Structures are given as C-alpha cells and as structure tokens.
Simulated assay, not measured.
Amino acid sequence: MSRPSTHADGDIVRDFLSIADLLEEPQLAQLYAYLARADEATVQDVMDELDLAQGTAYNYVNRLVDAGVVAVTHDEQPRRYAAEKIDLTVSTAAGDREYTITPALIDAVGRRQTNADIDTYIDRHGVAGLATALTYAVARDRGEVTHRLMASDLDISPLAAEMILQALRPVVHEYYDIEDTGAGLEELDVGSGAADDA
C-alpha cells in the first residue's frame, strides 16, 4: 500500500492510522498476516485458521476492509479477501530513526499474543525497536551479524538479543529469501564456551 507523494495529506494520514490499528491490535495483525500469506481467503477460512468466532471474524475482516488494508477479491458468496501490500516508512516520535512497516513486521507484531519473547521486546522497545530487531534477524540468518553485535549496537544484553532473534526466525524464513547454510546451533556464537577459554 505504498502511496505516491501526489496523494492528498488526508489519504496519507488515513493510511497511517489504518496501519497503526494493525500495530496496536495483535489479532488484527495476525489476521492481516494470514491473508498476506494465503493470497486470498474466505471468512470461514479465517475462522478455521485463526480459531475465531464467526462474529469476531466478520468484524475484524470488515475493519480491515474499511481501513483499506484488505480488499474484497470475489464479491459473490462466499466473498474472498486479500491483503493489500503495505510498505510505509515512518519516523520514531523522537525523529532519531526511520523504520518501514511491512507485512513481515505486521506478522511479527501479530505473534506477540503467542510468543512471550516478542511481547516482552515490544513492551520494552516498542514497534520501532521490533522493526530494528527484525532487520538484525534477517542479517543474522544471512550470516552478516551475530547476536553479540546486535546487543552491542542496540545497548541490550546478548541474552535479550539472542531471544528476540530466535523468536523472529520463523518470520524471517516466511518473508525473506534466506539460503540454508547448514550451520547448526553449536556453531552459533551464543555464549562463552570452551573455545573462548582457549
């Protein structure tokens, strides 16, 4: 849902507020992420996949359609819905950094209900912090950084960095093209071991 700069400011504000709802309500984020992965689905599919009551599923789908982040792709019964592409860059309140809201970030936010590590990280560092962690998670799975480098860069503990990197790994593999290097857990730089003592 990337908007050209020729759009009226009201459209841009409406878009941001729509996406802000996704970031504030994990169940809406979870629904959006499901539709983004599924390409399109019916409300029954949503109910089955996300274990939602019928009224809740219809309410959420309609909210996302009204917000402009989900579109009706087949208007005859049963209606089918698809997620609109979202790619919106925003600045933090302090204005010290920018981050991009993507389907991968929305999916990560949606997982806070079922993943305590993601939930805790968002509570401590906000969605902007989670976006930064997601960037490190992609780089880590590509072999470009370690959890220790992330911890040093972000001034967090190595344990906190490792926990969020592990929690974000399923999101990384869902949305990014990561080559399997075959590295095992024992090869990861997860703490001091015998090699550090030598």
Rank of each mutant, 00 (worst) to 15 (best):
residue 3 R to V: 12
residue 8 A to W: 10
residue 9 D to H: 14
residue 9 D to V: 13
residue 10 G to Q: 05
residue 10 G to H: 11
residue 12 I to C: 05
residue 12 I to P: 02
residue 13 V to Q: 02
residue 15 D to S: 13
residue 15 D to M: 15
residue 16 F to L: 04
residue 16 F to C: 03
residue 18 S to H: 00
residue 18 S to D: 07
residue 19 I to H: 00
residue 22 L to H: 04
residue 22 L to N: 08
residue 23 L to Q: 00
residue 24 E to P: 01
residue 24 E to I: 07
residue 25 E to I: 09
residue 26 P to K: 04
residue 27 Q to N: 09
residue 29 A to I: 03
residue 30 Q to H: 12
residue 30 Q to G: 08
residue 30 Q to L: 10
residue 31 L to S: 14
residue 33 A to W: 13
residue 33 A to C: 07
residue 38 A to H: 12
residue 38 A to L: 15
residue 39 D to N: 13
residue 40 E to L: 13
residue 41 A to I: 13
residue 41 A to S: 12
residue 42 T to D: 08
residue 42 T to M: 09
residue 44 Q to R: 13
residue 45 D to K: 02
residue 46 V to M: 07
residue 47 M to R: 13
residue 47 M to W: 10
residue 48 D to M: 15
residue 48 D to E: 15
residue 48 D to W: 12
residue 51 D to A: 12
residue 53 A to F: 03
residue 53 A to P: 14
residue 56 T to M: 10
residue 56 T to R: 11
residue 58 Y to K: 01
residue 59 N to Q: 11
residue 60 Y to L: 00
residue 60 Y to M: 07
residue 62 N to R: 10
residue 63 R to K: 06
residue 64 L to I: 06
residue 64 L to S: 05
residue 64 L to R: 00
residue 65 V to I: 00
residue 66 D to G: 04
residue 68 G to Q: 02
residue 69 V to F: 05
residue 69 V to G: 00
residue 72 V to Y: 10
residue 72 V to K: 04
residue 73 T to P: 07
residue 73 T to L: 14
residue 74 H to N: 10
residue 75 D to M: 11
residue 76 E to H: 09
residue 77 Q to P: 14
residue 77 Q to N: 13
residue 78 P to C: 09
residue 79 R to N: 02
residue 80 R to T: 09
residue 81 Y to R: 02
residue 83 A to W: 05
residue 83 A to I: 15
residue 83 A to D: 03
residue 84 E to P: 01
residue 84 E to D: 12
residue 87 D to M: 04
residue 88 L to G: 02
residue 89 T to H: 12
residue 89 T to M: 15
residue 91 S to V: 15
residue 92 T to W: 06
residue 93 A to S: 14
residue 93 A to K: 14
residue 94 A to V: 11
residue 95 G to I: 08
residue 95 G to R: 11
residue 96 D to C: 04
residue 97 R to H: 10
residue 99 Y to R: 02
residue 99 Y to E: 08
residue 99 Y to G: 03
residue 101 I to R: 05
residue 101 I to C: 03
residue 103 P to E: 07
residue 103 P to F: 09
residue 104 A to M: 07
residue 104 A to N: 10
residue 104 A to R: 02
residue 105 L to D: 07
residue 106 I to H: 07
residue 106 I to Y: 02
residue 108 A to D: 10
residue 108 A to L: 01
residue 109 V to E: 02
residue 110 G to A: 13
residue 111 R to E: 04
residue 114 T to R: 11
residue 114 T to F: 14
residue 115 N to D: 07
residue 116 A to I: 06
residue 117 D to G: 03
residue 117 D to E: 06
residue 120 T to H: 15
residue 121 Y to S: 06
residue 121 Y to V: 00
residue 121 Y to A: 02
residue 122 I to W: 09
residue 122 I to D: 08
residue 123 D to G: 14
residue 128 A to H: 06
residue 129 G to Y: 08
residue 130 L to Y: 04
residue 130 L to K: 06
residue 131 A to R: 00
residue 131 A to F: 06
residue 131 A to T: 05
residue 132 T to R: 03
residue 133 A to F: 03
residue 135 T to M: 13
residue 135 T to K: 07
residue 136 Y to M: 03
residue 136 Y to S: 00
residue 136 Y to V: 00
residue 137 A to V: 01
residue 138 V to F: 12
residue 138 V to R: 13
residue 139 A to E: 08
residue 139 A to S: 05
residue 141 D to T: 06
residue 143 G to W: 03
residue 144 E to Q: 11
residue 144 E to G: 01
residue 145 V to W: 06
residue 145 V to N: 01
residue 145 V to A: 00
